[in-house]
């Protein structure tokens, strides 16, 4: 579905992403992992046409650069880390904008399809109560769910998520990841997401791209890519030991009860 080859992004003389190759097929959830500054978010930005890049990004057999903006938005949707909003738009207004790509012309049509998608995504994300509220008064988690609803209303077949659960408490984290897994069950869909939390990556990912200092160190099915050896190399510490150590606390507590 998405084939990325020799992706290189430079900011001035600084090479942030260097010759990265990966691909995502239907039904797959690719986790991009790696330490801070590995270039994970930049990969997402390049694939969503937010920064200039070299190399090729082929989406459903067509070069991404050949897509018109609205065509790209129909095929590929992005959820950023944290959306700051300048003005007091209501949640509903923001969600409805997700349908922009289906009527990008001067006159906005209000097709049945639009209403259907919007209602559906509102139900899925559980934001009905927030619809008339100004998004400036929403909490970080609520706001993130509103933008997720916008993304689902946009109905792309590929989701790019840049640390979607960053700043979210556990309840929302669980909700969003469960929701995304359900979304992925419909055929013809795929997800690429940047995650910091390796446990989440392990639990939800089908595939993984491990990055370090702008380069891809490993790519493949999750269990092949995120091996103890690879992770220890990239993070420069005993990742497996640390993670298992943390888990041990949980086990001990549950045994005590």
């Amino acid at each position: 579905m998405l084939d990325v080859a020799d992706l290189t992004v430079r900011f001035g003389r600084l090479t942030v992403v260097n010759n990265v190759c990966f691909s995502v097929g239907e039904g797959q959830w690719l986790m991009i992992a790696g330490p801070n500054g590995a270039g994970k978010s930049t990969v997402i930005n390049a694939v969503s046409a937010g920064v200039p890049y070299e190399g090729s990004v082929i989406l459903r057999g067509r070069d991404l650069k050949g897509y018109k903006p609205y065509e790209r938005a129909r095929a590929l949707g992005v959820l950023s880390q944290m959306n700051l909003i300048g003005y007091a738009f209501t949640a509903e207004e923001i969600i409805r904008m997700g349908r922009y790509a289906y009527a990008p012309g001067i006159f906005s049509r209000r097709a049945e399809e639009d209403n259907l998608r919007v209602t559906e995504s509102i139900e899925m994300t559980g934001v009905r109560k927030l619809l008339k509220q100004s998004t400036l008064t929403l909490s970080g988690g609520e706001r993130q769910r509103v933008f997720l609803a916008q993304l689902l209303a946009q109905n792309p077949s590929l989701l790019l998520l840049d640390e979607p659960s960053n700043h979210l408490d556990l309840v929302y984290q669980k909700q969003i990841f469960t929701l995304l897994r359900e979304w992925l069950e419909t055929p013809g869909r795929a997800i690429v997401s940047v995650v910091h939390d390796l446990s989440l990556a392990m639990a939800f990912g089908t595939h993984a791209l491990l990055m370090n200092k702008g380069e891809a160190t490993a790519f493949g099915p999750i269990s092949d890519a995120l091996t103890a050896e690879n992770l220890n190399n990239v993070y420069g510490m005993d990742v497996f030991g640390w993670m298992s150590g943390l888990m041990a606390y949980w086990r001990r507590d549950s045994e005590n009860i």
Binding site: P69, Y70, R74, G86, F89, M97, Y100, A101, S108
Partner: peptide
């Protein structure tokens, strides 16, 4: 005025505008 919807998208954020398919 014909660009009101695009301006709405920009007012939320330029990145978001690009993501929903606005020719920024």
């Amino acid at each position: 005025m014909t660009r009101a919807r695009e301006l709405n998208a920009f007012a939320i954020g330029e990145d978001n505008a690009r993501h929903i398919g606005v020719n920024v």
